[in-house]
């Protein structure tokens, strides 16, 4: 595995997806255009376009010809499902690995997880 920054278009697509998940852009809302995103983030419009197209390919945005890009009706649901599917690999697996390295037992790990919850 290589650690390091991910391509800008992936970062941007994830940032917009985050905004969809928390409702900053609710279903049917229009998201900024390629040029608006590019000027705001000072990135090449082709890069901004790639980010939007990635979200279209994932079914999170829909294109309306001549109007722009809009949040798909089921986008928040799709995102929540996808992130739940990834949750174990993304968060639990590294947690286990680091706990093992540090010699933290599962019981101690459970205790840590419960600590801030009570």
């Amino acid at each position: 595995m290589i650690d390091g920054p991910r391509p800008i278009f992936v970062e941007l697509a994830d940032a917009i997806a985050d905004d969809i998940l928390v409702g900053t852009y609710p279903p049917d809302a229009q998201v900024p255009s390629t040029n608006e995103l590019a000027a705001h983030h000072r990135i090449n419009p082709a890069t901004a376009g790639k980010a939007l197209n990635r979200l279209v390919d994932e079914g999170l945005l829909v294109k309306r010809r001549g109007l722009g890009m809009f949040v798909a009706d089921n986008a928040p649901e799709l995102l929540r499902k996808r992130r739940l599917d990834d949750f174990e690999a993304q968060f639990i697996a590294p947690l286990r690995t680091e706990a093992q390295r540090l010699g933290i037992s599962y019981a101690e790990l459970h205790a840590l997880l419960d600590k801030d919850h009570s």
Binding site: T34, N35, A38, A39, R42, I43, N44, P45
Partner: peptide, 12 residues
């Protein structure tokens, strides 16, 4: 940088 992208976006 901002003006470059703005100008280029308006007319690639």
């Amino acid at each position: 940088y901002e003006e470059l992208i703005r100008s280029y976006g308006a007319q690639p």
